[in-house]
Design a protein around this nucleic acid. Structure first.
Length: 190
DNA sequence: GGTGGGATTAGCT
DNA sequence: GCTAATCCCACCA
């Protein structure tokens, strides 16, 4: 399986968000390997996007967004959940793609244990859920996604993609920057 | 040093 | 549909 190269992540957030559909996210944990196919993403742009964490400049929290594309940007939200993002673009830009849902492929038993939830379609169908299933927390922040233990590899071409507005935002909610595999039973919200 | 909001989820009505 | 759970961080004093 080919690990996605630097050039892939150097593209703009919307392009990467669309092209991430069908790719595989893999996390090699002490207890075993978990893998899933990306079925839902959201782009957060550096320009003309008030919903982007980087919109008001660089801070301690969003600093990883300004690094070179290909790193993980993880943040903690609502006192209990983590959101996993992929930094995109060249260094200094401030863009990222939120991974919102995965179709479980490998390590389903481990995901069930991590989530305390045994219904497979509910394991990774949301940003907080997949972070819990994959043991993604602040320790993964700033990690290079082109190296083990957390990395993204080539997957299958996704033919049918639906584009909608992003979910849960108070700002920039009108922008069409959410992408998902049409008809997938694993997306957070069809 | 205090405060308020947030790219969510599960469980109940 | 509504709401509690729960905490880091940005912002203001």
């Amino acid at each position: 399986m080919r690990i996605m190269p630097l050039e892939f992540y150097a593209q703009d957030a919307a392009t990467v968000a669309r092209q991430l559909l069908g790719k595989q996210l893999i996390h090699e944990l002490a207890e075993g390997l978990v893998a899933g196919m990306i079925v839902e993403t959201e782009a957060y742009r550096s320009h003309d996007d008030p919903g982007c964490h980087a919109a008001r400049g660089k801070t301690a929290r969003n600093a990883p967004m300004f690094e070179q594309g290909g790193l993980a940007y993880v943040y903690f939200i609502y006192g209990m959940h983590h959101c996993f993002n992929v930094v995109t673009g060249p260094e200094g830009v401030g863009e990222a793609v939120l991974i919102r849902a995965l179709a479980p492929l490998q390590g389903v038993d481990l995901m069930i244990r991590n989530r305390r939830q045994d219904k497979v379609p509910l394991l990774c169908s949301g940003p907080g859920k997949l972070s819990q299933a994959f043991c993604i927390d602040m320790n993964c922040n700033r990690q290079n996604l082109r190296e083990k233990p957390l990395y993204i590899v080539e997957g299958e071409e996704v033919q049918d993609i639906t584009v909608t507005t992003r979910i849960g935002l108070t700002r920039g909610s009108h922008l069409l920057l959410r992408y998902y595999s049409s008809g997938s039973p694993f997306v957070s919200r069809p």
